[in-house]
Design a protein around this nucleic acid. Structure first.
Lengths: 347, 347
DNA sequence: CAGTAAATTGGTAGCGCTGCCAAAAAAACC
DNA sequence: GGTTTTTTTGGCAGCGCTACCAATTTACTG
């Protein structure tokens, strides 16, 4: 943690008084409005029937007292919780903010609240965090992919809340699943490169044990190459997370070892951009000397001097659909949103 | 004849059972362990005293029944809520995921839960979302910057929960504030460009009415230029959000109108990267023909063939410190984490 | 206008847990 | 052994709200 540089501060007495704020309760509103508690509750939730006159009186009292309903109490008293728990691997990988962005818009419209925690791609941590999440009795738990510990699965199943597995459709869903096929993405990427005539193809990727979806793409990529008699020429796998820096470093190492490659497949667009920059810096001309192919379809890839050849994934839409399924309480199903291969100019 | 055991009819009954999953309660654990409810509560929270033997019995019962504590009930019964509410402008701008990332690590360690919603840079929406958040009685509300509606301020003040304003220190904090000075950033950026000898300086920015922090940077940037007899030569302000695409477009327009600029200041690194790509594509040599200066210190800016000249802001640290102040219940204060000017190679 | 249906209301029992208090058990003391 | 002290326990009243039901008022029949 960085050192704290702080300004002069007021005394700590203030903090105490600050904490013991008198909270207005529904009973007080009822009293002030001269109606019963259940009437106030009905008016505020716009549920059940009440006359226009009482509604006005209640709303006036709410306004006057500055009443803020207590959802904790409300949730405990009723059945469903209108909390949606996201247990995601990372916030550094743009995929997840995009997912949250799509979902949060839909959730907010429906008065749901998003809670999240970050597993750092660690299944054990996922289990612990999922348990912590279930303590809030969420309406749904949103996870990435299909790979969970037995404990996680058991716990989620027992919880009775909706489970949404996002970003993958290659496997057996626990309940709901929304995403696209990573295997198909790997396959089509390989097919595209082969169709363009590349035969000496390499791979630069980040830690595959952690990001199992990148692992799925890679393995079907390799299978497809193998099936066309152009097996993967070389690979460079970096320990850290997917990043531009690792992409550049990875390509540098790969080319040092195997200089005669004619194309490189990257685990992600940020890795691919790193490779792109490496080529720019070294004067390697793209795609004539070396072709580059990414994955994700980041906006930045469209604006580079040569648009990046990649696969665009519907990340925001995945979040939206996932949220939509939850708020509509849809029956168990797998939704494959597909992806789009962007030909670009780097392959 | 064998006795007829009536099957449950397929229909509503089954659905009911399905929804209302037999949730194990603390009382059931107490019963199973042969102890009182408060004993179970004490053991689980590791609070108060109990013998090793009862702890084992309780834990065994918890394990056996698969008990998951209900935090909703716990929070209602006790005082503090261990929920921290983030009300952030956006998830597209990398700043906010970084902020969340820093905070969530600290919060998770301390068994706090992060809740978030996205205002889309709209103060009215911020007010509505803050109200919705307060309904969960969070321990703290984390916001961006100092610019809030009167209603928001009033509500937050009345709530009695901690308030953290992040990413800015130029103004009067409501309670806690963590960040850095955007005014100083604008000033230092201008000073740097002037020191390097640039005199015909332009600006490319995104919507400043919404992103008030970018507005603060811009205005002190201009003031500094003016104070050194090199007033801003031209500006191009795009309606949309900060993005690589808008940066490229903005620079193109700016140069079309005012071709003799020798340096351009961008509202953000992603905008600056767009400008950088534009120069690459048009063969404008950097920095001899045109210098580029950004803001934020994105990782990608370090990996481009020429490292981007920019100001690196402690975004993750801001989240960390903000969370730390909340979990330690620190007295009201403003923490200025400062920033770092990266000379780079583009200016 | 009685007589019934429909629309409004209020009372109250929990939701599952924690905090307080007093009771019971164990340990320490003279 | 008889106390006093300390440690462990259990009981139970809420936390603030919603769901259910019954009571009340109002609207609508013929």
């Amino acid at each position: 943690m960085p050192p704290l540089r702080q300004r002069p501060e007021p005394g700590s007495k203030v903090t105490m008084e600050f904490k013991h704020q008198a909270t207005v309760t529904l009973a007080e509103v009822a009293e002030a409005a001269g109606v019963g508690e259940s009437t106030v509750s009905r008016v505020l939730r716009n549920h059940g029937s009440f006359s226009g006159r009482t509604r006005d009186r209640v709303m006036a009292a709410v306004e006057r007292l500055g009443y803020v309903p207590n959802r904790i109490a409300g949730t405990l008293a009723s059945t469903g919780s209108r909390l949606v728990a996201f247990v995601i691997p990372s916030l550094s990988n743009i995929v997840f903010p995009d997912l949250l962005r799509g979902a949060s818009a839909i959730l907010e419209e429906n008065r749901y609240q998003a809670v999240f925690s970050v597993t750092d791609y660690d299944p054990q941590k996922e289990e612990a965090l999922a348990a912590a999440m279930l303590a809030w009795r969420p309406a749904a738990v949103m996870l990435a992919g299909y790979e969970h510990t037995g404990g996680t699965v058991k716990m989620l199943r027992a919880s009775g809340c909706r489970i949404v597995e996002m970003l993958d459709v290659d496997g057996d869903a626990l309940d709901l699943a929304v995403g696209f096929s990573n295997r198909a993405a790997g396959r089509e990427s390989a097919a595209f490169l082969l169709k363009r005539g590349y035969r000496r193809i390499g791979y630069v990727g980040h830690d595959l044990n952690r990001d199992t979806r990148a692992g799925k793409r890679f393995s079907s990529f390799c299978e497809t190459l193998g099936a066309h008699d152009a097996p993967l020429a070389d690979r460079e796998i970096l320990a850290g997370a997917s990043s531009v820096e690792n992409g550049r470093l990875g390509l540098e190492r790969l080319l040092a070892r195997t200089p005669d490659l004619d194309a490189v497949y990257f685990s992600n667009d940020d890795m691919a951009l790193g490779g792109y920059f490496h080529c720019l810096a070294r004067g390697i001309s793209i795609p004539s000397e070396l072709a580059i192919f990414g994955y994700n379809g980041l906006d930045i890839g469209r604006v580079t001097p040569q648009p990046l050849s990649t696969i665009r994934t519907p990340r925001v839409a995945t979040g939206q659909v996932a949220a939509q399924l939850v708020v509509t309480n849809a029956p168990p199903q797998v939704v494959d949103l597909g992806f789009e291969l962007i030909e670009g100019a780097t392959a």
